[in-house]
Write a protein that binds this DNA or RNA. Sequence first.
DNA 1: TTAATTTGACCGCT
DNA 2: AGCGGTCAAATTAA
Length: 356
Amino acid sequence: MEDYGAAITLIRHGCKLAKVLESNLENLAREPSAISSCCDEIIKALGDARDRLRADHDQIMQEMRQPRNVVNDASLHEWLRSNNCYADQAMAMTHQDMSENKMGSAQLLASSIGHLAMDVSVLGNAPSSSSSSSQRPRKRKDDGETRIVQMAAPQIGNTEIPPEDGYTWRKYGQKEIMGSKYPRGYYRCTHQKLYNCAAKKQVQRLDHDPYTFEVMYRGHHTCHMSATAPSMLPSQAVILSQDMTQTLAVSTITSTTTSAEPLMSNITTTSSVPLRSWLSMDFSPPIGHGTGTSSGAGTSSAARYNKDQAVHEFPVVDLADAMFNCGSSSTSNSMDFLFPNSVEDKHDIKGTKKNG
DNA sequence: TTAATTTGACCGCT
DNA sequence: AGCGGTCAAATTAA
């Protein structure tokens, strides 16, 4: 842990630089080289911080692998619940998941509040036994955990398409569903082949509310491990239920989080300003509770630092990682995090162009 | 030319 | 048997 202090110093330095850059962005509009070199400085500082933290992180992970660290910490869950720390992610990770992955409390916490780590634990979805048919073996069942969210249809542009959720999806099917007015669309991660990413989603409009999409996420994104993988979180989401296939395992958590839960009870249109929170917070506690899970979710990413005393190591790792791993082939990169306006601009462009 | 979407058919599961 | 998830050829878009 001796590197931790140095890492913090480096991160503070990086944030300071970012702040300066942020405040001078308009002045430097015609000097991309200046911006570029400033970015290099920021990246270097945070990269060094990341390296130091990873060294500590590895050491901690060794300790985490002790059985006693398997999550069974009611206070942690209570904290997660009360701080809206991406409950969908945190809570979707079941006790079973965590024990199987030897995930400790602190790591769970890190994963839940890491706005980039949508699926921190890469759960090995054991492939189901393939059909004996010599034709196309089709996987069914054992899709791993599922999460259902409701997302508001885009308010501008094409409202017929499902809302942007920060990931890039490729549609592979559509089907009329019995008893439903609207067809169900089947999507898989664009990076499925490139990164063997197993994430999928099904999108369907609600019969009684065509302006709301019900989105079922299946599997985990593994593509975020790549430097070109997307990083944003689902936005405008209302958690209906999580881990439907492992309800029992997660029931202790969801009982406090999923039913009419105020923390996620509003469909919000909050813009994504994650780093703005960092930059303006100076590692001091943020104000109030966020209620939205927008792309990048500023309020929630702020909340992640609300308990810095308890979880200080891993959020910082996430932060540093965020700066380097959040590059996206389609939606955002680290500079987008630095300059949220550009993120919004991009989203507007993409949202009106295509979605999914 | 490449990538994404559409759509009919196939096939697992209940 | 039939619903729902997936495949893959055909089509469309960039």
